[in-house]
Amino acid sequence: MPDFSETIPIDQVGIKERVARLNSRSIKKESKIMALKMALSMVDLTTLEGMDTPGKVIQLCHKAKEPYADMPDLPTVAAVCVYPNMVSVAKKALRGTDINVASVATAFPSGTATLDAKLKETRQVVADGADEVDMVISRGKFLAGDYQYVFDEIAAVKEACGGAHLKVILETGELQTLENVRKASDLAMHAGADFIKTSTGKVQPAATQPVTLVMLEAIRDFYYETDRMVGMKPAGGIRKAKQAIQYLVLVNETLGADWLTPNYFRFGASSLANDLLLQIVKQDTGVYQSKDYFSND
């Protein structure tokens, strides 16, 4: 494990200026349509409520498969993201498609369970058919400086994942500083994360562009050092197509084209898909449709 007691300095003002500069990119015409479709293909359609039902999850899977019936050529979303007890339901509903089932695990969203319980839960969701596991780090241990614990825990969960992809949620809204975001990103990647993810969506602020830029830069440095590509998933608070395009610009100009695929970039979002559809149809027809034309699953 690298020495994580060393802090990599991050200049918050500089990060904000860079984000503002990238937000000034004007994405028009064909490049806009392409961006909207690309964003749709990167959505992890998510439902993470205590009152989720099998019925709700099944209907969400229908939407994942066929987001807008009038445009059958649209890409499908990348994955459906659910709680552990819904994995088998989602798996069954998505059988025969390329859409992955992602499950949150490791005592989501607080992450305050024993390691044994976390590993057991991870193995269970993978056995139930989860293709991707979204774990949360132990923020308490991280903030206390016990990096070894956090590192070992991620490594252990990665092992428990077997063939499933591991996304590591840093819960950046609780990490206090951008330097901590950077450190947690590095720690997760060195411990074996396939993706790093900003937030559970249960803590405010969730995903922000400055935090995402810091994580993308961490991914870039990790790639320079190890030649291994790690994915990125901002999650929570991304509701509008315009925001999604801004995120894509961030990725495009920080990591380049190789990351602009669902294999390396995802949006964790529930309502984003509908705004993307609304904008895609608007580009196609020239007018905004009533929201009632889109399913609200």
């Binding site: 961006a35 790639y223 084209a257």
Partner: peptide, 10 residues
């Protein structure tokens, strides 16, 4: 890094 992908700004 590869900046020559299909997504180029119009």
């Amino acid at each position: 890094l590869n900046f020559e992908g299909p997504w180029q700004y119009d």
